[in-house]
């Protein structure tokens, strides 16, 4: 798999795919997309990077262990559900607010953080499986 072309393109392809996955994640609430699909895209991006350039560059680039990323995601999702308790509403009731970014009002919600959590869980779990499998291939 380590052809020159593939290896040269892989980093760019991966960055583009990760960028695209975040775009898909964020637009998910109104357009096709969301955390799950975004996570799958990012996971396949890392899998491609791993196939092209070996596992250790991917691990270096990710910095955290993919399973830790997954765990964080689960925590983020669970915590985002807890926010509603302070408003005396049931667990996981979406809370909405508006913040101004550079003068533009942006809707922000606990649901978004929930979705980010989903994204992280999917990226982390699948990447860690894929990387572990790739690692054994070269071992």
């Amino acid at each position: 798999m380590r052809t020159l072309i593939f290896r040269t393109i892989a980093p760019y392809l991966t960055s583009l795919m990760v960028l695209f996955s975040i775009f898909v994640l964020l637009r998910g609430h109104n357009e096709p997309g969301g955390g799950f699909i975004g996570g799958l895209i990012a996971a396949s991006a890392f899998a491609i990077y791993g196939i092209a350039c070996g596992v250790s560059p991917v691990r270096r680039a990710l910095y955290f262990h993919p399973m830790a990323i997954s765990g964080c995601g689960l925590l983020v999702s669970a915590l985002s559900g807890l926010v509603s308790i302070f408003e005396e509403m049931p667990f996981l009731t979406g809370q909405w607010g508006v913040i101004e970014v550079l003068g533009v009002p942006v809707d922000i919600s606990t649901v978004l953080f929930f979705d980010i959590g989903v994204y992280l869980v999917v990226v982390g779990s699948i990447t860690s499986v894929a990387l572990a499998l790739e690692e054994r291939e070269h071992a």
């Binding site: 998910g28 609430h29 357009e31 955390g35 799950f36 559900g81 996981l92 649901v111 929930f114 979705d115």
Partner: peptide
């Protein structure tokens, strides 16, 4: 749920506990 994408809204909001 303030979202137009029904599928996603179901996943993250209406049936959030399932997703969790």
């Amino acid at each position: 749920a303030h979202g137009r994408n029904i599928v996603n809204v179901i996943i993250v909001d209406f049936r959030g506990l399932d997703t969790l």
